[in-house]
């Protein structure tokens, strides 16, 4: 097992799979990311991440229906596995913990230069 840590883009894709359920496949994920964030990932980047996440066991997939635009090729629909949601939870809780521990003053722009 390749370790349970996930990267930022991996997390994003994983979240998108959840958001788009049950219609999460390469193109829709890519478009969703483009829509919701300012970044424009390439299709191959999304596919590579999906593949990696599946290998790590965070995603599972099955073939879905086909459309005319796809030239007879079926979609591959992704779902988050239990393990995947656990990882998302962990990331989230770790983040929350960290947020909670940041002193207010650190965020409000404390400076040593300026005397009180």
């Amino acid at each position: 097992m390749k370790g349970t840590n996930i990267g930022e883009f991996e997390e994003l894709v994983l979240l998108m799979v959840g958001v788009l359920y049950p219609e999460a496949y390469g193109v829709s994920i890519k478009n969703e990311i483009a829509l919701r964030s300012s970044r424009k990932p390439t299709l191959s980047a999304v596919h590579a991440v999906l593949q990696r996440l599946q290998q790590k066991g965070f995603l599972k997939s099955e073939f879905g229906e086909t459309t005319k635009a796809r030239g007879g090729k079926r979609k591959k629909l992704f779902q988050i596995t239990a393990q995947g949601s656990k990882v998302l939870e962990e990331v989230r809780s770790m983040r929350n913990e960290l947020w909670d521990q940041i002193p207010k003053v650190a965020l409000s722009g404390f400076s040593y230069q300026r005397p009180l």
Binding site: G26, H47, F63, R70, K73, K75, K76
Partner: peptide
Amino acid sequence: LLEEIEGDLNEEFE
């Protein structure tokens, strides 16, 4: 992986 990739490519291409 060919089928999903080709399908996605076709869709996006269109």
